[in-house]
Every structure is written in structure tokens, then in C-alpha cells.
Design a protein around this nucleic acid. Sequence first.
DNA 1: TTGTACGCGTTATCAC
DNA 2: GTGATAACGCGTACAA
Lengths: 342, 342
Amino acid sequence: MKFEAVTIKDIAKALGLSTSTVSRALRDSYEISPETKKRVLEYSEKINYRPNPIALSLKEKRSRSIGIIVCEIANSFFSQIINGIESIAYDKGYNVIIAQSHESYEREVLNLQYLASRSIDGLLISVSSETQEMDHLRSLHEKGFPIVFFDRVVDELQTHKVIVDNFKGAYDASLHLVKNGFRNIAALAGSEYLSITKERLGGYVKALEDMGRHYDSTMVQHCLHGGMLYEEVETAIDHLLQLPNPPDAIIASADKLTTNCMRYFKKKNIRVPEDIALIGFSNLDLTDLLSPALSVVRQPAFEMGQISTELLIQQIEAKRPRDFERRILPPQLFIRESSEKI
Amino acid sequence: MKFEAVTIKDIAKALGLSTSTVSRALRDSYEISPETKKRVLEYSEKINYRPNPIALSLKEKRSRSIGIIVCEIANSFFSQIINGIESIAYDKGYNVIIAQSHESYEREVLNLQYLASRSIDGLLISVSSETQEMDHLRSLHEKGFPIVFFDRVVDELQTHKVIVDNFKGAYDASLHLVKNGFRNIAALAGSEYLSITKERLGGYVKALEDMGRHYDSTMVQHCLHGGMLYEEVETAIDHLLQLPNPPDAIIASADKLTTNCMRYFKKKNIRVPEDIALIGFSNLDLTDLLSPALSVVRQPAFEMGQISTELLIQQIEAKRPRDFERRILPPQLFIRESSEKI
DNA sequence: TTGTACGCGTTATCAC
DNA sequence: GTGATAACGCGTACAA
């Protein structure tokens, strides 16, 4: 089932011109007579001519497409990011090719190889929970391939990075819990390898210390898959609740951690916030409809996507390397029922 | 910031061979001596040679990429569909390029032009709420361009179509409400132009009739943007509740209609299901966490994506046209608190 | 067994 | 003002 498109050659043949004349006429070159231009333009309009982007890519050595690697698109935060990315990319005439790591290092590497082999002009990536080794990214980066990190960044590589102030987000949320009278605040965190985990835990610890609380490392539980698997969350919370001094509040540091935490409480008939309070990082649009309405730290995901894409395209189109930027966006705290002291 | 890749030419030069010999060696052609093959293979491994897919596309007149047009990726149903699409596409070596119509006919047409001009090999589409005119799709289809419709299909065009049994989904849900003792069941429906709207309303009407109820057209409200805008849902429900004989149950026929319906009830302090019951089409993963837990008709979205993609790639790769299939998948009914008779 | 020449669609360069 | 040619990277029919 081939689908034949109109080429410059067809136009040239039909009009008795050479392909170069047609090409120039289409590009409105000063060399071509107005009359010829008119003939060419009218005819190509008539037969609905579109230049073949593949031929152009081959010639220009660029594909005008950019790759995206995220863990999961069925996740509000990332689908909002992708919306932001697309809004800029389409404006500037770029395609986006999306790949999902599903929080697996192996799939991240495979996806990267795949995208690189599809000759993308640049990459936007938020690394997987499992990713510790950076060789797959480093080797591309060293060749001068444009890469922008967002959300989950990698310090070792010198590139543009776009994140939210995770420290502040977690600090504010933790402070809110302390000020609201909760005494024993646990942290449900993602993979220890991730930048966001470290930053968010940092904010949590600092808030406790600033409020004169003792930081107790047994109150921190990590989930390697970022809460993607319900079981890992279940195990983590089971562990916390079996402590001699169990928490009366939890701060969950990722979307899936937060919702799976709620699922756990619902399943076990643990009342929120009466038995235990909850606040979490989440970009769900439905947090107000949950039972109870969920207190969240929300990230400006759409803007993150836009900024990352602008930086990437800027880098792709730059003649010479520029300095790399580190953009830090403000998180927003929404206090609702789940973190109220009863 | 150009990024130079290794070509066959580089290998040929380095090894003192011609490009055709290298090409054949890489493709393991019988004509090449084992010794030469070994040299070529080892060297190209060493310098990490990857064939340029753009050059291949130009030659083979196919890009190994397929286009997807959906209204919104930040919608569980569609992001699950896309997961299904990707799982098959990547297996078969295809890229996917995703575009969003945001329920706008104009953007759908623009996206289609864009994708077509990016030389995709085929298209997977679920049309926008606003789409009535089909010329943009018809003209492509008539040229023999492979198109597969999923979810929101267009009867006028003879292509593969993958849908769920919307009639049955709505019928079962409506029957459940009637049997549960609700007397006045309203339908909150999407755009009248959409196939899914017609099919779902059909099931609703039939269920009422089968149960000896009178079907009253004032109990049906349409939202042109499929509930994407909260205001249209508000207006629709306001209207229903102001009827002389207001509904005691609502069936909402799309994801956003359902959640915005809940938002309305929460905002107006209307209790569900005490004051009014609710059941809706939804693929949210969180319906069990909402307050109250939401009764839903769920669609096998992942499978829809997989099947659509298999049909599309089959058609792209087919030598001659085959008959077009219409696959109808079963919906699943989940009864929870929101539709319980108190 | 290996090399030469051509074509895919386009544009830049040079020639007329 | 217009046309012929080469080049982008690859695969292959044909030639050696």
C-alpha cells in the first residue's frame, strides 16, 4: 500500500521546466521571472505539492524532530509536561517522538538507542528510577548531542536543566505538617538514585530541624519504582506503621506514591487525616475530588515542558555552544483536608 | 550544534573498500567473502556505526513512523490507548508521532496536514468533538493512505475501525440504574457529532424502553467539548436540575463529563448517591479513591491501542488491499458507591 | 568477490 | 532567467 506523493520533478515535467527552476520558484528566488514563479506556484497549489521532509532532512542533516524519554505518559505530571513540550515544538516546526522507560534502566537505554538511531536532533529526558549509570547519556553528550534534563536531572552532565525547587516544596509541606501539630512525620520517598528524591528529602529534614524536631532515619522509606507498584508502597507503609513510634503524618514525594498511599489507607480502613495525615507531590487534576480532598505540592509541569523545549531548540539551532542554564521553577502548595489536624 | 554521524563511506575509506561492498557486508550478503565481512563488521562495531534511517526512508519511500491524533493525552483513556499503540509500534520498529486536537476541528485539520507533510506511513485517529466535515480525512483516504479509526469512528470512510461496544456499555449501566430503583435517569452526553455519543445514547434509550420507561429527550444534555470545559458541564446539569421533574440519577458518557459532574456535585454540596446517583464512562485509575467511589463503564483502552496498531501496520505492509475490519471490544461495568440506592 | 553507477527528493553551485 | 550537475546516505542492478 504505497502512497505516491507529488514531487518537484512532477511539477517540472508538467510545466516543461527544470527541477532547479521549480525549486527556486517555490522558494521565491530573485533569479526567477515573475511569470514563471506564478505558473509554478499556481500549479503546485493546484496539485497540492508539499516538499518531502525526508529529502530535506537528508540534505540538511537534521530531522526537525526531538526525542522525549519519560517514565510514563499515563501520569498527570508527565502528560502535562508533554503538553508543554508539544506546544513549543509544533510552533517551531519540530516533531516530538515520545518513549517511555516505565522506570526501567534497561528500557531507558534501549529507548535512547532507538531514538538516537532515528536521528533526532535533540533529547529531553527525565531519567528512570533505576538509572545510576550514565554512560548511555554521557557518550551522546560528549559527541555534542543536545540534551536537556527536566525534573529528574543528572548532576554529572553539563547541560541545560529545568526543575522545580523540590527542596522548598518538601520544606513547605513538612513545615505545614509540623505547624499543624503533627509530631511524627514520616517520608515516603522514591528511588534513592534520583535527584528529586534527594532534594525533597533534604527539604523534609531541614524543616524538621528548623522546627527543633529530631530527624529519625527510620521514618524514611524508599520505593525504588517511585510507587508505580502498589506492593512497594504497601511494604513501605506497613513498615512505618509497625514502628514502636508510628507516624501521625506522611509526606509522599511523588504522584504514584501519594495515590497508592491513599489506596493503602482506604484498603486498611485507616482514616485520613484522623488516624494519619497525608500530603504529597502530585499534579493530578482530581485531587479536590478525592476522599478526603488531598493536600499537595504541585509543580508547574506545563511551563517546565515549555522551558525545556525552548532551551533544547535554542541549543540545537545555536551556531556555537552557549553556557548551560539551570532553571528552577517554584512549586505550589495546596492545603486541603488530608493534612488538617482534627 | 551539528552532530556528525558515521556513514558507510567512512567505513569504506578506512578499510579501503567501496561503499557497496561495505553495504553488502553489513547486510550479510552471500556475495561477500567471510573475511571481508568480518573486517567490516568488526570495524563498524568498533566505531558504532548505525545506518541513517533518513537515507533509508528516502530510498524506501517509507518513514517507519505512524501518526496519532487524539483530543488530549492528559486523559487516562487516551494515554492508555497510546501505551497500547506504542507497545506494538516499537516492537515492529515504528515510531509514533502524537498530535492533540484539543477537541478542535481546526486543530485536527492542521495536525493532519502537519503529520501528512511529515511523511508518516499511516494514521491512527479518534476524531475531535467538533468534527463534522470529513474532507481532510477523505482526501487522504482516497489516495490509498492507510488510516485506522479507534473509539470515535467515522462511518463514511471505509477503513479499519476499533471500538468498544458502546451501546452495551451504556445499556448495562442504564439497566443497572433502573434495576437499582432510580426512576428518573438523565444522560450527560458528549458532542452529537460523535459516533460514541450516538451509540451510548442508543444503549441508554433502549435500556429505558426495555424496562418499560418512557424516554424523555429533555433528560439528555449534550456538551460539545466532551466535558473538557467545566462550564459546559455546569450549564448542562443546571438545566437538568431545574426541570420540573429533575433526575435522581445521571449517566455520563465520557471521562471528563464524569469527573466534572462530580466536581459540580461537590461544589454545590449535592450528595452522591443520596441526592443523585452517578455512573460514567471512565478509564481513570483512581475511581476507587474518589468520594464516593465511582461506578464506571471502563473500556479496554490498552488493547484498543494494540489492535488498532496491528491493523494499521498490517495495512501499511500489505502488498494488496484487504477487507476492512470492524473490531468491537467488550466494555466492563464496575459498580461502586456512586450508583447505590440508599 | 568486489566495484561502478544510479536513484530516492531536494537545494546549492556553476554554467549558459 | 534558466538548466545541468553534484551532494546528502543508502541499497542494488549491472559490470568487471
